[in-house]
Design a protein around this nucleic acid. Structure first.
Lengths: 321, 321
DNA sequence: ATGAAAGCGCTAACAC
DNA sequence: GTGTTAGCGCTTTCAT
């Protein structure tokens, strides 16, 4: 390339990274030559020298509406900052390790760890010098890694407050996976606030954060147990299943039982469900995570816990009002 | 590192890429040293030398359930092949160009172009020597780029066949965006097959591939026009909106009007909708695309058009049968 | 304003 | 089985 333009390689570099330092006519000559032979600066070589890739890695679960939204948000926000997103989706936790390896090998500028089901052990492994790691919506990471999360506990508390205003005497919490730290926080918020009102709150585990799990558990409940006044579900996706399961079994929502969700998926406001839920301000969370990742000052083990907002849908509107 | 282990750099390389060539004790000495100082081979340097990154780029729209599924599938399948996925999400078509730049700069091993709304002009720009580009579900690219796509036309034909068996006399096609090539193919399949039965098929444009667009168009239709026996909707997401819009307006689905979708999203089979739709075999499409990208033999401008399957849901089940 | 030269960390060819 | 050497394509002093 340098030869083609009749200049030194140093000048070529300058044309593409600090054009100000190069005479207009030389610059033109270089650009012409580049177009002629289809030259494009090699980012790999640049990274080798500069020790920066401008690529951020993200470990995100492959399943679930919520995570998809998070991923989308990350990808957009990073693009705005001139960074690329290298995606490590994972089904099981073992692959998290693969991601970490890749992060080290590719010398990524940082890594986002998003998922509520990564073990403490893995999290500890992430504490190390080198590229910065930020945990996303993963309360378990508190004190281990810098963390950005929605305020899960306050979220379900707020939902209880709203529901209580509708008048309820009995309740139940339907979680996805009991080990998930988000599930635990959400249950805690619900149980505490309900407890303050003198209402008990049993925990029922659906078994997965999926529609099907919600559907199944709702079918079983409507057969066996006595239905509570309100079912607080740990995530919207499970809640949709719960609602459909109840309705299929002939139970009216919200006529016979009120239902709340958590996350604030777009579908929550669809007319078919219009689910009362806690809306996570995903873009805010993501911006905060990116800031922690990219800011010059070390975030240490700082935690950012950001509140969500209650969306009041039809599923908690008493019909007899 | 070489110094730390007391061997040459070449030996270090061998330990990590062809361990067979190195004596066991030397190997141990190198690994110990690596652990001691936290050494990890630098993939950037390797890429610079080998001219391969083991990273595949993907340009995918940021909106829409369908594309999210496609993305997830790509990410998983590539991981199985030891490749990483660099994600370029894009809202508007201008960003496609950014992606192409990045592909060139990072010397990616290939690029997947997924989206039905990339202009011919941009597609032509992708025809170039260098890393391979494969178009995904983008009929416009036929003859320009190697293409993998579901058979859109045959898909709506198959849906017509199923619907006709239920007995219909009038129909309508609700598209997302008229310019989208997938929309055009899907309309063509529906119109042709309906025409063969002597049934006319007007095209109505919702304006976007979203729930809201479907909801709105359904509200308008149920107010003004006379409802057809069947509304064939160009995508599931729009179809959900159409169904909710109709039901909110007091129109029964499938009592008053049958509805079909296209894509086969997981939600289609949810009890709330149980939408008859054409299921795209996403994993098959994705595998095919990856094969085209990575296979040694040049795919040229070969097109792979893969058939989908009809899922028969409740939305086309005549109530009076 | 431009060039020369060293070096980022690895791989591959060749020697021993 | 291991070392030596050259070079991938940039960036960055240091000269001129």
């Amino acid at each position: 390339m340098a030869a083609e333009a009749g200049v030194s390689q140093a000048t070529v570099t300058r044309v593409f990274s600090s054009p100000g330092l190069v005479a207009p006519d030389t610059q033109q000559r270089v650009r012409d030559a580049a177009n002629r032979i289809g030259y494009v600066p090699n980012a790999i070589a640049r990274s080798l020298k500069s020790q920066r890739t401008d690529i951020v890695g993200a470990v995100v679960p492959t399943q679930g509406e919520y995570w998809q939204s998070v991923l989308t948000s990350f990808s957009r926000r990073l693009a705005d900052k001139g960074k690329q997103l290298l995606l490590f989706s994972f089904a099981d936790a073992d692959h998290v390790v693969d991601a970490l390896d890749a992060v080290e090998q590719y010398r990524l500028d940082g890594l986002v760890l998003a998922s509520s089901t990564i073990s403490q052990e893995h999290l500890v492994r992430m504490r190390r010098p080198g590229p910065r790691v930020v945990a996303f919506n993963q309360p378990t990471a508190t004190g281990l890694l810098p963390l950005v999360s929605v305020d899960n506990e306050a979220g379900t508390s707020a939902l209880v407050e709203h529901v209580a205003a509708q008048g309820v005497a009995t309740a139940m919490f339907v979680g996805g996976v009991a080990e998930a730290s988000t599930d635990q926080m959400r249950y805690r918020g619900a149980a505490k606030s309900l407890g303050d009102l003198g209402i008990a709150c049993p925990y029922i585990e659906a078994g997965a954060f999926t529609y099907d799990a919600g559907y199944k558990v709702a079918s079983q409940i409507s057969e066996g147990l006595e239905l509570p006044d309100v079912m607080m579900v740990g995530s919207d996706e499970v809640a949709f299943g719960v609602i459909d399961g109840l309705r299929t079994a002939g139970v009216s929502v919200p006529g016979d039982v009120l239902v709340t969700g958590f996350d604030g998926l777009p579908q929550a406001s669809w007319a078919g469900y219009d689910l009362t839920t806690l809306v996570q301000p995903i873009d805010v969370l993501v911006d905060e995570a990116i800031a922690m990742l990219l800011d010059t000052e070390d975030p240490g083990e700082r935690s950012q816990v950001i509140p969500g907002t209650v969306y009041e849908g039809r599923t908690t509107r008493r019909i007899n009002d």
